[in-house]
């Protein structure tokens, strides 16, 4: 079987879906963040696959930016997690339900 671009896209899509589903079913913000990373990685894979198919380096360049975005997001996201827990010592986030959606 030949590995066409399509297979990479399928893999990327699967990662995206798994990540998205995970984000929706998990309640732990840390894991949610990881799921976001999964989604971004699925996208990255698609970008690289397209880049190769198109014979254009642009797709790879974009992945580079996505990495930076992911890093920035994670820094802030983890900062938030820390801020939430740090300022209420002894409580778990189960108590954080002032804003039930």
């Amino acid at each position: 079987m030949e590995i066409t671009t399509g297979w990479y896209l399928v893999l990327g899509a699967l990662l995206f879906v798994i990540g998205g589903t995970g984000l929706l079913i998990r309640r732990n913000p840390l894991v949610m963040l990881m799921c976001v990373e999964l989604m971004l990685n699925g996208v990255n894979l698609s970008f690289v696959a397209f880049s190769r198919t198109l014979g254009d380096i642009g797709g790879q360049t974009v992945v580079f930016f996505v990495l930076v975005v992911a890093a920035a997001e994670v820094v802030v996201g983890l900062g938030l997690v820390v801020a939430i827990l740090r300022r209420q010592p002894g409580s778990t986030a189960d108590d954080l339900s002032a804003l039930k959606g």
Binding site: T4, T53, L54, G55
Partner: peptide
């Protein structure tokens, strides 16, 4: 998936 996913080619430099 067997089909080519896109008809576009090489707007930028050549890769590989």
């Amino acid at each position: 998936v067997g089909e080519p996913v896109t008809g576009v080619h090489a707007m930028g430099g050549t890769l590989g």
